[in-house]
Nucleic acid binder design. Structure first.
Lengths: 236, 236
DNA sequence: AGGAATTTGTGCGTATGTATC
DNA sequence: AGATACATACGCACAAATTCC
C-alpha cells in the first residue's frame, strides 16, 4: 500500500482500516479467511506493527474480524451468502436468522416534512422493502436516501445489503448510525404477509445513517413484527 | 496505585480503567474535572504513557471522558445530579430528559421459569421500579438480581442508578449488556400513571447485564410508554 | 503427552506532528 | 510566538494462547 501522506490526509491506521474494510466488502477477503501474521502484514504494508494493530483493533470493534491470541486474525464469518450485515439489528426471537430482502417500490420524491432534516438535497430516493428472517416476513422498511448521492438508483443492482450497494455502486460509505426504537402503527402500505395489520401497533426503528464525516446520508424506518423479530443491541 | 501483578490478574490498563471508573462513580472525580496531563499521570501511577493511553481510550469509548487534543482529558459532564447513566438507553422523543426512579416493590423469590437462565442461585431479588424522564412516568422496570451477589438488599440505600448501588454496596461491577427490544403487553401490575393500560402493547426491553468475566448477574425487563420515551442505540 | 514454534496480547520508551491555550 | 498537551507512529521485549510435530 502506498500511504497517503498529503497534508490533511487521514491517519495511517485509518487508511489501513478503510482499505481492509473495502477488501472485505468487495470479497477480496473471504469470510473466515485468515489474515497474514501481524508482523508479516506490517512488513508488507511498510508500517509498524503497532500501527497495524490499531487498524485491526478498529476492525474488531466494528465486528468485521476476530482476533485470536496465539492463532491469528480472521475475517468474521457472517453466515450469510450476501456479505456483511454488521448493521442489521433485527434477529429472530430465538436468536440469529438469515436475513433477506425484496424491494416493493422505488421512487424519487421530495422529502416529506415528518422526516428529520438531513442531507443537502430537497429530494430523496424512497425505497420500500420487505425483509425476511429465514424466509419469514419480519419487517417493512422505508428508506430515504438523500438524492445528492445519486441521480438514479437501479433496483436490479441492489444487493440484499443496501450498504454494500451504496459502497460498490455509489461509492457511499455508511460508517455508523443512531437508532431510535419505539412502538408505532404499521403503515397503510403494509402488504398481506406482514403480521400486524395496517394501523395496529408494532415495533418501530428510525435510523439515521452517517458517513465518516458525521453527515446523515440516509434515514430509514422499519416496522417489525415482534412475534417474529426483536431489535438487539450489545454493549461491553 | 499499586498494580496487581498476581497471576490471573487483569491487564494493567484494565486495572487503571476500572480504578478510574470507580473514581468517577464515587465522585472522587467530579463532572467536568480535568485529569492531569498524561505524562504526569502516568508518572504518578508508575506506568508508561502508552498503557495509560489505552486505559483512557477505553474510558472514552464508554463515554466517561472527553479527550481533547491540545487541551486535556475531562470527566464528561453527565448533566445529572445522580451520577452516570451510561447504560440508560431510554430518552424523551425530543431527545434527552432527566431520569429518576421510584421503587414500588422489593422481594426475594425463586426465579420464574420464563426468565433466561443466569447466575448460580435458584433465588433472585426482584425489584419493581417506576422510572421517570423529567418527572413524567416513562417506564416500568422489573429487575432480577441473582441472589448470589447479596443476601439482602436495602431499598433505602439504593441510589437512582442501581448500577452505582451494585458497585458501592455490593461490589458488583456491571460492565456490559445485551438488550432485546420488542413489543409486549404492559404487565398486570402496571400502576395508574403509566400510560399503557395492563395488557395493551407497549415497548419492551429485556436486558442481560454482564460482569467483566462475561457472567450474567442480572436480568431486567422494561416496559416503556412510547408516547413518552424511545430506546436509543448509537454505533459508529 | 509434551515440547517447540508460531502468533497475538501487554507494556515500555521515544520521537514527531498537531491542536489548544 | 511559545508552551502545553494530546495524537500518531515506530520499535522492542516478554507473556500468554494456540498450533503443530
Amino acid at each position: 500500500m502506498i500511504p497517503d501522506t498529503a497534508p490533511g490526509a487521514l491517519p495511517l491506521y485509518q487508511q489501513v482500516s478503510e482499505m481492509l474494510i473495502r477488501d472485505i466488502a468487495s470479497g477480496r477477503l473471504r469470510d473466515g479467511a485468515r489474515l497474514p501474521p501481524e508482523r508479516k502484514m506490517a512488513a508488507t504494508l511498510g508500517l509498524s506493527v503497532g500501527t497495524l494493530r490499531k487498524a485491526l483493533a478498529d476492525l474488531e470493534q466494528r465486528g468485521l474480524i476476530d482476533r485470536r491470541q496465539g492463532s491469528g486474525n480472521y475475517i468474521r464469518a457472517s453466515q450469510t451468502p450476501e456479505g456483511i450485515y454488521a448493521f442489521y439489528r433485527l434477529e429472530r426471537l430465538t436468536g440469529g436468522g438469515l436475513p433477506s430482502a425484496r424491494i416493493l417500490d422505488l421512487q424519487r420524491r421530495a422529502k416529506p416534512d415528518d422526516l428529520p432534516g438531513f442531507g443537502l438535497c430537497p429530494d430523496a430516493h424512497r425505497i420500500r422493502r420487505l425483509r425476511y428472517l429465514d424466509g419469514d416476513v419480519a419487517s417493512l422498511e422505508e428508506i430515504w436516501l438523500d438524492a445528492s448521492h445519486a441521480d438514479r438508483l437501479d433496483p436490479d443492482e441492489m444487493s440484499q445489503s443496501l450498504y454494500l450497494y451504496y459502497r460498490d455502486a455509489l461509492d457511499l460509505w455508511i460508517t455508523g448510525y443512531d437508532d431510535h426504537v419505539s412502538v408505532a402503527p404499521a403503515p397503510a402500505w403494509a402488504p398481506d404477509g406482514f403480521g400486524p395489520r395496517a394501523g395496529t401497533p408494532c415495533g418501530f426503528v428510525e435510523r439515521l445513517s452517517r458517513t465518516a464525516d458525521g453527515q446523515i446520508a440516509e434515514v430509514s424506518r422499519t416496522w417489525f413484527d415482534s412475534t417474529i423479530a426483536r431489535y438487539v443491541a450489545r454493549m461491553r
